[in-house]
Every structure is written in C-alpha cells, then in structure tokens.
C-alpha cells in the first residue's frame, strides 16, 4: 500500500488559486470553506514591498494531533496515508479543529461570509448541508471517508481526493496528471495546477518522483517543530518564502503600520 504525499514547488506556484477552485468544485464545498487555500503574506514598503503566498492543503500528517484528540475515533489515518473523517461517527465536538496546527478543518454550521446564504439558494435534501448544483455522482460519495456533500453538524477536511487516489492500481510510484494512465486517480488540485507546481506520489517508494524531489531540492515541512510530520512538502528553492510561524502579526515595517 502506498503512502501518498504531496510536493509543492513554490518557485513554480503563481498563487492563481486554481487549486482552490478545483478543490471546491470537486468536493462540493460551500463558498469560503476552502479545504485547499492559498495564504498571502505581505512585507515591507513601497518600492521594496514584497508579496508572497503559500498554497496550503491539509498536511495529512504522519502523526496527526487531530486524530489523537478525537474522542470517538471519527478522525483516522487511512491505509494510504490520508487523514480522513468518518462522517457517520463524527459528533461535531470540534476538538480536532482546536488541535490541528494548520487550521485545515471546517465546520459548515456557521454564519456564511457571503450572502445570500448558498444553503438557502440550494436547500439540502435530507441530512445534507446543501444540494449543490454541481456535485459528484451519488455512487462516488462516501461518508465513511468524508467524501461528497457532507451531512449537517460534522467536521470536514481535505481527503487527498480519496475517491480518486483509493482507486489507483497498486504498484504506482507516482500519480502524474500528465500521464493519461494515472490522471484520473490524481487529486483535483494537482490535476488543475497550471504551472505544474504540484507533485503527488508514494513517499515510501525511494524511486518515486516526490521522494527524489524532496531529496534533491531540500523539501521542507510546515511547522515541523509540532512533531506532526506532514506528508506535504514544500520546495522553496532560493527564495525563503515558507512562513516559519502561523503569525498574523505583521512585521513593523509593513505598509499598514
């Protein structure tokens, strides 16, 4: 069984947020509920001000604190390395949202940031949060793995597109969007990335492209000091664009101060 992981090359990423949009459409997310977000950081003043960005999916940690704190076992580590939520066990206590160092878990039962409330425009049938006009087929939806239109009052998160990756034939070392044989098994954000900044492969396979990239281009992980050991690696190249902290504190020289 592979242990899927992702590598994001920040020298290639343009911050276009196509990954965000693709994820939203693929996974039937509400507006603003961005499993795959792009974070922005601005520093300095005109004319030497600098804008940087960081695409941020769930890190699918090797040692996930969100799984450790879950009182019901609804949050779990799947056999292919993805951190998932069983929507049929989740009680909506939100402790996992407290414990995730990356803030990548979501609870849909909140006041919507955009109006009209999209849930009123496309009201839900049965127990679901809403009935999106675009959605994956019913037979693909899989609440045990947190895939599809979610039920009310449960927590949701990125699944590494489990409905795609779990169907991949065994023995593949990489899921390459440019290879017709593996494209349909590749996560939506990787497929849609126009500059090809994302790579997806088996972290346990020394021959995989992701392993080579991590080794050759010094792949680093976000907030490594937490001990969660993310399975998402960043390639920063020469530019120090990986934020070392979660801070929203702007440096004193920022234009706003």
């Amino acid at each position: 069984m592979p242990r899927w992981g992702m590598v994001i090359d920040l020298e290639k990423c343009t911050g276009c947020q196509a990954c965000t949009a693709a994820c939203q459409m693929e996974n039937c997310r509400l507006p603003g509920e961005m499993w795959q977000d792009v974070l922005f950081y601005s520093e300095g003043e005109y004319p030497s001000g600098k804008l940087t960005w960081l695409p941020r999916p769930c890190m699918h940690c090797e040692n996930p604190s969100c799984v450790a704190v879950c009182p019901t076992g609804a949050a779990y580590k799947a056999e292919n390395g993805a951190v998932l939520i069983d929507w049929e066990r989740c009680i909506g206590c939100k402790y996992c949202m407290i414990a995730c160092p990356y803030g990548v878990r979501f609870y849909a039962e909140e006041k919507q940031k955009t109006q009209p409330d999209i849930r009123d425009v496309f009201p839900a049938k049965g127990d679901k949060v809403w009935d999106p006009p675009y959605k994956m087929p019913e037979q693909v939806q899989d609440p045990k793995h947190g895939v599809g239109v979610q039920p009310k009052n449960v927590v949701s998160k990125c699944t590494f597109c489990y409905h795609r990756t779990s169907k991949a034939p065994t023995g593949l070392k990489d899921l390459d969007p440019n290879d017709p044989a593996t494209r349909k098994f590749t996560p939506a954000c990787v497929v849609t990335c126009a500059p090809g900044a994302r790579y997806f492969g088996d972290l346990d396979n020394p021959e995989s492209n992701v392993r080579k990239l991590i080794a050759e281009k010094r792949g680093t992980r976000l907030l490594d000091q937490t001990g969660n050991r993310p399975q998402v690696y960043y390639l920063a190249g020469e530019a120090p664009v990986i934020p070392e902290t979660r801070s929203v504190r702007k440096p004193k020289q920022s234009p706003e101060t």
Binding site: F40, G103, R246, S247, V248
Partner: peptide, 15 residues
C-alpha cells in the same frame, strides 16, 4: 484567547 490568533491563515486574515 486560545483561538484569537488564527492557526495558519496568512497576514491578511487578521485576528
């Protein structure tokens, strides 16, 4: 106060 500073949202998110 435990949740005031967002976990990982970039500079633009604010408190």
């Amino acid at each position: 106060i435990g949740q005031k500073v967002p976990l990982f949202k970039g500079y633009w998110a604010g408190y």
